[in-house]
């Protein structure tokens, strides 16, 4: 079962990588230089890490049947906040200043996630609409923090988060690995995963079984905000600056795409963190590939569009029914047969 689910995403990833290998034979080669490992594969992991982080949070939100459009804005806000507080410090490279900045940024991102969760779980606004608010206002807030400029900081300690390396590998890879493990433990070693899937699949039945669905939603949106926050730190520290206008632009869409490619349904229920990981890597590899081939990178968008459509069609019951011939209709599956029949 496990194999089967990850089979197609993995195949796509392998095919992409093989294509690269054929196109440029030294694609897989990894060189050691100044005690760091260099190579395209490492680059994919390194550049893909913010996306993977955001996608991990998004997976859990989507599993509850929701969606978070505001992650891109949260990425921008946290990056801006961290850079602002470092730039205000007397010693930009001071450990206290850097840790303080990281702390403030993370608390802020969790708070923003909580705000989304509050609108969805307490006020009862549809997730897509509730998170649209922060998506719109968030970029403004980020620019407000940076005062419309690009804040540049001079802090090797801060830079280490996104551009440093540990044990010859980029440090960001460790952060992503840690978050992935935390998310997996949180959902599989506590009961949270079970509750998320239950709430996403059947809210009514879950409530009657005693699951506190509101708390689950709050937690999940908060976690998603936190993931976006960490991604914001990675991005801004990588370039030692914060750009409120462009940081994390379109991240929400890439993250949703990664989740969907990974096999988690947009309608909620079962979720697959490993699938999301593969999905995010596919997107990053695709970008790298297109760069390598020399096609303008913007054309990735066309490919993404086709992927979104293909994945959604495959997930659509009706489309599969069309492929198989006549859709099966039982008395119980077609709770609303009139709606489907006369479509």
């Amino acid at each position: 079962m496990m194999k089967h689910r990850l089979f197609w995403p993995l195949m796509v990833l392998v095919v992409l990588l093989l294509f690269n290998l054929i196109y440029s034979p030294d694609f897989f080669s990894i060189k050691m230089r100044d005690g760091h490992l260099y190579g395209s594969l490492i680059d994919i992991l390194n550049f893909g890490s913010p996306l993977i982080l955001v996608a991990i949070g998004m997976t859990l939100v989507i599993a509850t049947g929701g969606i978070d459009l505001s992650v891109g804005s949260v990425v921008a806000i946290t990056g801006a906040m961290a850079c602002l507080s470092i730039s205000r410090a007397n010693d930009q490279n001071g450990l206290v200043a850097v840790l303080g900045a990281v702390g403030i940024a993370l608390v802020l991102s969790a708070a923003l996630g909580l705000w989304n969760g509050f609108l969805v779980a307490r006020i009862g606004i549809q997730p897509i609409i509730a998170t649209l608010i922060l998506m719109v206002a968030g970029r403004g807030i980020a620019q407000l923090i940076t005062n419309g400029q690009i804040i540049t900081v001079l802090s090797p300690k801060y830079q280490y988060i996104g551009a440093g390396s540990l044990l010859t590998l980029p440090f960001s890879i460790f952060i992503v690995a840690a978050m992935f493990v935390i998310a997996s433990l949180l959902t599989r070693k506590t009961a949270l995963g079970l509750f998320i899937e239950a709430v996403g699949c059947k809210p009514t039945a879950s409530r009657l079984a005693g699951v506190r669905s509101r708390t689950v939603m709050l937690a999940v949106y908060m976690f998603c905000g936190l993931c976006a926050g960490i991604a914001g730190l990675l991005l801004s520290s990588n370039v030692s600056s914060a750009d409120g206008n462009n940081a994390g632009l379109w991240y929400e869409l890439d993250a949703i795409l990664a989740v969907v490619i990974g096999g988690t349904s947009l309608t909620g229920g079962r979720f697959y963190l490993a699938g999301t990981l593969v999905g995010a890597l596919i997107i990053q590899t695709l970008t790298t590939t297109i760069y390598m081939v020399g096609v303008p990178p913007e054309i990735t968008l066309v490919v993404k569009a086709l992927v979104v459509l293909a994945v959604c069609l495959v997930q659509s019951e009706k489309f599969r029914g069309l492929l198989r011939g006549r859709p099966k209709a039982g008395p119980l599956q077609t709770a609303n047969p009139e709606v489907k029949r006369h479509a």
Partner: peptide
Amino acid sequence: SSWWTRIVIGVLLL
């Protein structure tokens, strides 16, 4: 500054 537009629109949206 111009970014206030977005913030105000976000608040109005809310």
